[in-house]
Design a protein around this nucleic acid. Structure first.
Length: 899
RNA sequence: GGGCGGUUAGCUCAGCGGGAGAGCACUACGUUGACAUCGUAGGGGUCACUGGUUCAAUCCCAGUACCGCCCACCA
């Protein structure tokens, strides 16, 4: 016996245990012999992560695909795992240490700290895996991988070494985005532009040898002036022409700085003269290079001003009282305090021309949240430009296809303008770079220390002490290998041969650059083949204002709360139903509630089947059914099956969800189950047996079609209706037969009942009142149908008798169905005025409709140019409308005069 | 500055060259032995605006307004 309502909290864990026990998601489980592989690698969530709504969407869609293909008999591998998330994880552990008032990482040292991170991972990392299981994700959990696993680390090392040897990874000293809070370099992608209200300061720099003359520069970053080594003006700028090649004296410092002509200077911006600080600005760095201006770094790793003992800073500067004061005042100040002090010092000297309010964007580190500094350091880079070429070609040639297609433009735009990828990070948690330095700085890159040592010893002829590079790799470096490293690469495993390239990658657009592009580059380089055939880019789930959800904004919808409240099936169905291509999802909880109700509806349909003892019959084939209702519902199921299947194949998840929803609720429950009640409540008969079998048969297929979206309730219902293999293994329903005759008969029946109900309701006939139906003008076919469905019409239209009449009943309410007119004698019951109004309204509506069609048909151009079937359709519609109008007018005429 | 997307019922969203849709909310009636997490019926939209293409535009094109996102840059 099925319980009165579906209790998700009770069923979900039980079903999950069932799957686990059956090892249902293991790669190849349930696959047909000779099955084609279908593989997906999960976008690995951060080990620090907790399931947010974006994960819920992302994994629901992957699971729909995985379950769909598994049911179809494909050999499915959904490869799960997690990302070590270098910066995020290191921050979490450091914060925890701080809260516990333990000594910080610098005190305990690298080895101890890394050990602590591993301990943290073992203890509290990876909660998200269990959360994904709660969602119902059918990953092959036995194959779970972690980017810092031994195997994956081996892959990372191999990739680094090979790319280094191929010249595609190199060291370079240039400006990087430096996060002073995290004390590490970060890549361009990890920088966020934040609009900030600031000031624009106009500083006067004295011209050398011409007392009282200044060149005025505008800057938003006064503190960097200490590192100025030039002033640039546009070569065509008449105002400054005579100053080019001469020198200004840098205030507070006394350094001679050259005035150069450079296209970079924009005569329209500021004063047209711009100070050049090569060590602290990307553009200035380039200008400096062009003109041979030195780059003087005046900040330390935490972005405090560093002047004392800074040889570059004082080089060539005559040491005097002013310089000593400057150093004493500013050295060691953080950059923001230094800014204020410098402005004050400049003001004291009368060198501030003006200060304006200024809104500009300031680059911030996406993790640390503080402004980043362009900072001159030596880092490791990957030659992204070279690696990108095959990745661009692969998409151009359609070897990898983006869905929706328009994301390919985004991909190309970025790939074609790709910059060197800074891959080193000054962190401790991550893959340490396999590079060692001899005392003289000679570099040895090798897979192991032993190999590096051997190389070094050979080179120097004797034992050479080596020191390993301290840096670790960008987390995305290991993520980029995910589609093949998780399959066992660099070993030539059977899984690698079978499941690479993967079938589809499902992800949100915000990591196309971070991840998709880099997997393409590395996959093509090392596997000589694209990592995935399709890339399905889904929406971002946003808050009600359309903003990205984030912890800091506090606008998060927690999927786990939704799961607790409505069940995983309802949450999944909601996300799938809203996953229309190319549009973001603004989630409303009421939708989840609505789909929870849908689950309840399905549950009750199953209770109906149970109540009437409808059991699946082996080998039942509805094409042999004799009952029109059964042939009709089987026909509708065929259409629904086809819609669901083609929609999933095309990644149109919302269409698939909508098709099965409508069939289940609006056809199967609302009509079919109501229409067959008389049969099921009647005497034992062949028709009754056939109907019972059909109910069970259709319900089984509904449950199957719904399984990719609502795996828990469907698996439960499947198990409850008979001993058989798990639904997770299918079968996926094939479209069955179609019977147009049955379909048109039942559609007529539905139309008739709806019309009668509608009129009754408008006439305020009490729901319990039985009203006879007098049918006139009916064709022979209609008479047959009326006889055939007599019982059900009476039941659903609340009538105590259907009789044929020659003429519509005068003074009765008239319903027009097809060619027939049905009279409802409601003389005493109804409001004649209301009825007259109703018919008049209907006639007006029909007249408008006719007028509209006439306008079209009367148009010669339309008849000449529109496709024939469209013209024909309009003619038919006109005929129908015309007939309807005639009968409506007749009904009106028969109405007795009221008042 | 460049690019992308959006504007459809009170709300959240589908749809789309030829008859405006769903869920929720709302109104009326209803416990007819699957289901009140329900049933039946109903109200509600000049499909942002302006032009154009077309026999025909909510849908295609161009422009405008507003909203949002991405990229680059800002002296």
């Amino acid at each position: 016996m099925l319980e009165k309502t579906f209790d998700a909290a009770d069923v979900e864990p039980r079903i999950a245990a069932l799957w686990e026990k059956a090892d249902a998601f293991r790669a190849g489980a349930g696959a047909k012999p000779g099955a084609k592989p279908f593989s997906i690698v999960i976008p690995p969530p951060n080990v620090t992560g907790s399931l947010h709504i974006g994960h819920a969407l992302n994994n629901t869609l992957q699971d729909v695909l995985a379950r769909f293909e598994r049911m179809r008999g494909r050999d499915v591998l959904w490869q799960p795992g997690m990302d070590h998330a270098g910066i995020a994880t290191q921050m979490v552990v450091e914060r925890q240490m701080m809260e516990r008032q333990e000594p910080d990482r610098h005190k305990i040292g690298r080895a101890k700290f890394v050990e602590k991170v591993w301990a943290w991972k073992a203890e509290s990392g990876g909660q998200i895996i269990n959360q994904l299981k709660r969602l119902g994700a059918s990953c092959d959990w036995s194959r779970e991988r972690f980017t810092m696993d031994e195997g994956l680390s081996r892959a990372v090392t191999k990739v680094f070494v090979e790319l280094y040897r191929a010249g595609l990874i190199y060291k370079d000293k240039r400006l990087v985005n430096w996060d002073p809070k995290l004390r590490t370099a970060i890549s361009d992608l990890e920088v966020e532009q934040v609009e900030t209200k600031g000031k624009l300061y106009y500083f006067k720099y004295p011209i050398e040898g011409e007392a009282g003359r200044f060149i005025v520069v505008a800057t938003t970053r006064p503190e960097t002036m200490l590192g100025d080594t030039g002033v640039a003006v546009h070569p065509d700028d008449e105002r400054y022409k005579d100053l080019v090649g001469r020198y200004a004296i840098l205030p507070l410092v006394g350094r001679r700085i050259r005035i150069v002509a450079d296209e970079y200077a924009d005569p329209e911006a500021g004063t047209g003269a711009v100070k050049i600080t090569p060590a602290h600005d990307f553009n200035d760095f380039e200008v400096g290079k062009r003109h041979g201006l030195p780059a003087i770094n005046i900040l330390d790793v935490v972005a405090n001003v560093s002047l004392d003992g800074n040889a570059d800073f004082v080089e060539g500067v005559p040491s005097g009282e002013e310089l000593r004061t400057t150093i004493a005042t500013l050295h060691g100040l953080d950059r923001f305090s230094a800014r204020k002090r410098i402005v004050a010092m400049m003001e004291d000297r009368g060198l501030v021309e003006k200060i304006e309010d200024h809104v500009h964007t300031v680059p911030h580190g996406d993790r640390g949240g503080v402004p980043i500094e362009p900072y001159l350091t030596e880092q490791w880079y990957a030659d992204a430009k070279t690696l990108a070429a095959p990745a661009i070609a692969a998409v151009r040639e359609g070897r990898t296809v983006f869905v929706p297609k328009n994301w390919e433009k985004t991909y190309f735009d970025w790939m074609e303008n790709i910059q060197p990828w800074c891959i080193s990070r000054q962190l401790w948690w991550g893959h340490q770079i396999p590079a060692w330095y001899a005392p003289d700085g000679t570099l040895f890159v090798a897979a192991t220390e032993r190999e590096a040592q051997a190389e070094a010893d050979a080179r120097f002829g004797g034992h050479t002490p080596l020191k390993r590079d301290e840096d670790v790799l960008d987390t995305w470096f290991s993520s980029a290998l995910w589609p093949f490293s998780t399959l066992g690469w660099p070993d030539e495993t059977p899984e690698l041969a079978r499941y690479y390239p993967t079938s589809v990658l499902v992800t949100a657009f915000d990591i196309i650059f971070f991840w998709v592009a880099r997997m393409m580059m590395f996959g093509l380089h090392f596997m000589k083949e694209v990592p995935f055939r399709d890339v399905y880019i889904h929406a971002l789930v946003r808050d009600e204002k359309g903003a990205k959800m984030s912890k800091s904004k506090g606008n998060i919808i927690d999927p786990l709360v939704l799961i607790d409240r409505y069940g995983a099936d309802a949450v999944r169905f909601t996300l799938a139903a809203m996953a229309a291509q190319g549009r973001d999802i603004k989630l409303a909880e009421s939708r989840v509630e609505g789909y929870r109700n849908f689950a309840t509806k399905l549950w009750n349909a199953a209770r109906f089947a149970e109540h009437y003892d409808c059991r699946p019959i082996d080998g039942f084939d509805p094409s042999g059914a004799t009952e029109t209702l059964n042939r009709w519902i089987a026909t509708e199921l065929t259409l629904a099956t086809r819609s669901v299947t083609t929609a999933i194949e095309a990644y149109k998840f919302n269409e698939a969800a909508g098709a099965i929803y409508r069939f289940t609720w609006n056809l199967f429950c609302d009509w079919y189950l109501e229409l067959i009640k008389p049969v099921l409540n009647g005497e034992a008969s062949a028709a009754k047996e056939e109907t019972r079998a059909t109910v069970a048969w259709v319900l089984d297929r509904i449950v199957a079609l719904l399984h990719p979206f609502m795996p828990f309730i469907t698996e439960e219902l499947w198990a409850r209706s008979g001993e058989r293999p798990l639904l997770a293994f299918g079968p996926w329903p094939d479209p069955g037969f179609e019977d147009d005759v049955a379909a048109s008969e039942i559609n007529w029946l539905i139309g008739l009942i709806s019309e009668v109900r509608s009129v009754r309701s408008e006439m305020n006939v009490p729901a319990g009142a039985m009203v006879p139906l007098l049918v006139s003008g009916a064709s022979a076919d209609t008479v047959d149908r009326l006889r055939k469905h007599d019982v059900v019409i009476k039941r659903l239209a609340r009538s105590d008798g259907i009789t044929l009449a020659d003429m519509p009943l005068s003074g009765a309410v008239q319903v027009l169905v097809g060619e027939a007119t049905i009279s409802l004698p409601l003389a005493g019951v109804i409001d004649l005025k209301a009825e007259k109004a109703r018919l008049t309204r209907e006639a007006d509506k029909t007249r408008k409709e006719i007028a509209k069609i006439d306008a079209k048909l009367g148009n010669e151009q339309f008849r000449a140019k529109a496709p024939e079937e469209v013209v024909e359709e309009q003619r038919e519609r006109r005929e129908e409308a015309e007939a309807l109008l005639a009968r409506t007018e007749a009904a009106l005429a028969r109405l007795p005069e009221s008042d």
